[in-house]
Amino acid sequence: MARIAVLVFPGSNCDHDAYHAAKHVFGQDARFVWHKEESVGDADLVIVPGGFSYGDYLRSGAIARFSPVMKDVVRHAKEGGLVLGVCNGFQVLCEAGLLPGALMRNASLRFVCRDVHLRVENAETPFTNQAQVGDLLTVPVAHGDGNYTADEATLDRLEAENRVVFRYADADGQITPEANPNGSARNIAGVLGENGNVLGMMPHPERCVEAILGHGGADGAVLFRSALAHLGESVAA
């Protein structure tokens, strides 16, 4: 069983969803880690969940990065441990310097909650090894600050190093402005850290791992299956 730590900041609200997916859907050894704790313990995978840490009153994720537990998350990442940041978690990881770029207010200036299509751009990551390049995943987004931005040189480097993992696409897999729910640069929905073991993404894979919840199936499961495969766990499909 993989050991999965789900961080809980004041204002996290997708922590239970990540825990439920890890523990009850995939049967792993999941536990919550309160942000005041100093260590993520011997976790194989750290999930930084969505929500509104500290209310997002300053800048999304800007205060959470100073929580005591984040020092150990950085240590864990530097030692090659897996880290998945979703939504607010993506914002926290950018603020913590584990991922490049930043997430600005959506171009529409409105919160957006809907299913989007993600095109898999790199299927050789710890989080997508069970997918194929070009696969289209239906995954929900729910955020007000999901507009990914970085300077042109950084974006070029991300693409050159194959660190763009997901892009927003239309139903035919085309990368179009209409398919982009938040104005993200180059339709980027998820990026890898330098060493390939940290993934940040705005869409919520943990919300679509059970068919009963709709979202066109359970496409988010592929991220969990990939991470578990990477960790050498056998998982029922």
Binding site: H16, A21, G50, V112, C113, A142, L213
Partner: peptide, 16 residues
């Protein structure tokens, strides 16, 4: 209207 609301958080929404 409703796309401005989070309709799925807590992963219980079967019909939103």
């Amino acid at each position: 209207v409703f796309e401005q609301y989070d309709t799925h958080v807590r992963t219980n929404t079967v019909s939103g």
